[in-house]
Computed example of a mutant assay.
Amino acid sequence: MSRFPLTLSALAVGLATALAAPAALAQEQTRKPSHCIAIADAAPGLSYVQTASFGAPLEDFTVRLSYIAHASFLIEGPEGFTAVTDYTGFLGNTSFFPDVVTMNNAHSTHWTANPDPRIPHVLPGWNTSGPNPVEHYLDLGEVLVRNVPTDVRSGFGTVSAPLGNSIFVFEIAGLCIGHLGHLHHEPNDMQYAALGRLDVVMAPVDGGYTVPQDVMISILRRLRSSVIVPMHWFGDFTLQSFLTGMASEFRVEYRDTNFLEVSLRTLPSEPTVVVLRPAWLRDDDL
């Protein structure tokens, strides 16, 4: 049975999302607990293999990450779940639409005011109706999507929108996958704690529009994720500068394609930066 683009019918029943302020205590007690926060030690294993492009069937307990462009990734789960991060409204020459999109509003290249109306769950990383931070806790069974709000800062370093953007975490197939978004500052201790364990992290490494590269390297050292995928790098010079800064403590691996498959099996021998080349989605890849 084809999972693209008709992947939504199996998810249509029982879908719910938390889109506003923190839920009441009684509601919180019904939530599926976050295993990424509850289990702070290292995962039992993670392997990555490159076998197929977007839309192809996945093995059990395997997730595919496809780097689309800039800060947008397609996340595919083994049971058919799909999500796009920092969704701008354009994915390429494709009729595909995902189950979930996340967005951040620091720049127009990270969101759209007109998302495809077929997308069931659109999760902005800021509160579109007021000054309070937004809280997402979307439990779709196969995946839990949640956010950790962070500040939007001006070019002068001042806070222009407190907790106005988000780091999104996808808990799927036993993995904890984090997308740091348009991060403007190092998370504080409470934010690190809210993130929990991140097995895979997608990190902006431009060093200018987001945090300086030395700050990003410090963040990634603290997270100590098994796999780091650089994004938001504006050219090979910027990317190579980041990789040079990471090379003393992290293995660096280059891929010729835009995707990576991960599963909880065997961890890399050391934390690894996996460099993917972005590519738009195309229906003829299916």
Rank of each mutant, 00 (worst) to 15 (best):
A24S: 13
A24C: 08
L25I: 14
A26L: 15
E28C: 14
E28G: 06
Q29D: 13
R31W: 15
R31Q: 15
S34Y: 07
I37G: 00
A38E: 14
A40L: 08
D41Q: 12
A42T: 15
P44M: 11
P44Q: 07
G45L: 13
L46T: 15
S47C: 11
Y48D: 14
F54E: 09
G55W: 01
G55C: 04
G55A: 07
P57R: 08
F61P: 00
F61G: 10
T62W: 10
R64Y: 10
S66F: 03
H70T: 13
A71G: 14
S72I: 03
F73Y: 15
E76T: 02
E76V: 04
F81S: 14
V84F: 01
D86L: 10
T88L: 00
F90M: 08
G92C: 03
T94K: 04
S95V: 07
D99M: 11
V100L: 04
V101K: 02
A106M: 09
A106P: 00
A106G: 00
T109C: 08
H110E: 09
H110S: 11
W111N: 11
T112N: 00
T112D: 08
N114Y: 13
P115F: 07
P117W: 06
I119W: 10
P124Q: 10
W126G: 05
N127Q: 10
S129D: 14
S129F: 13
G130C: 02
N132H: 09
V134Y: 04
E135K: 10
Y137H: 03
L138Q: 06
D139T: 02
G141A: 10
E142V: 03
E142C: 01
L144K: 02
R146P: 08
P149T: 03
D151A: 09
V152K: 06
S154C: 11
T158W: 09
T158M: 13
V159A: 03
S160R: 12
P162S: 12
L163Y: 01
S166G: 02
I167H: 04
V169T: 05
